[in-house]
Design a protein around this nucleic acid. Sequence first.
DNA 1: ATATCTGAGTTGGTAGTTCCTACTCAGCCA
DNA 2: TGGCTGAGTAGGAACTACCAACTCAGATAT
Lengths: 138, 138
Amino acid sequence: MLDSACSIERTLGVLGERWTFLILREALAGTTRFAQFREALGVAPDVLTARLNTLVDYGVMAREPYQEPGSRPRDAYRLTDSGRELILVLAALQQWGDLHLPWPAGPSIQRRVRATGRPVQVGFVDENGREVAPADTR
Amino acid sequence: MLDSACSIERTLGVLGERWTFLILREALAGTTRFAQFREALGVAPDVLTARLNTLVDYGVMAREPYQEPGSRPRDAYRLTDSGRELILVLAALQQWGDLHLPWPAGPSIQRRVRATGRPVQVGFVDENGREVAPADTR
DNA sequence: ATATCTGAGTTGGTAGTTCCTACTCAGCCA
DNA sequence: TGGCTGAGTAGGAACTACCAACTCAGATAT
């Protein structure tokens, strides 16, 4: 999968295992530490170790040493720029789920323009920054 | 996962298993029949059956009877409108892979505006159809 | 110095999935 | 009726995730 000519397939080779997208969701929400991921997701520690390692291997996250007073030095896991770009993938997944797998309590959190507070969607845009309908692309 | 309050998690409950995104990639490329999926992907038949069933169960694809001359009636699997909207997710995955997991031969296929032939990207857009930088959202 | 505490992983066994091959089963045609 | 073809099923091996208990290192207390 990792050496496919298809970039979707390569991406899934890095991100497509169970838990990976949820780890990224937490990371984008600000989580950085092993125990935080573990607590937020309830993922088994060996699986978390494995996922974080591949994310680091492929440059999606980076280890960053830190030390709490009274504790030994540890590594935090911080998204790289490339990792932060995955916000588009996660937002697209969320948008689809909000539309097609609705939840009684309504959509969870809306993404908004920071300055104006107006809602934002994921879509196709041309080189001038104008939205293009999916049907108008090929 | 399917009954999570998080729409990303619900979406992954439907689409997050191995092969599902690749099945959708093929479906978006026009594949509709069991044997075509099987040949294009090399997926085991029992897994393909299971994946197509959940996609149908959740309204991403629909069965559509057809009959080749000289053959018995069969079911084709066609994307529903909701399934076609997943083009955004797939395109976001592809875009990320093209940027961050480059392939010697360069990016595979570029999405373009049908009318003008100009390239198209996935991005955030506000309600006026103007692109918004991810950093300007919250 | 020794003992203790704590958090980040490792390890080992079990259960659940995927994979692979071979098989079935239904309708069409000879 | 018997063979052909394509869509699935079945059975077993291999892989992956899950769970609980354990290790290991550094910081603090005694």
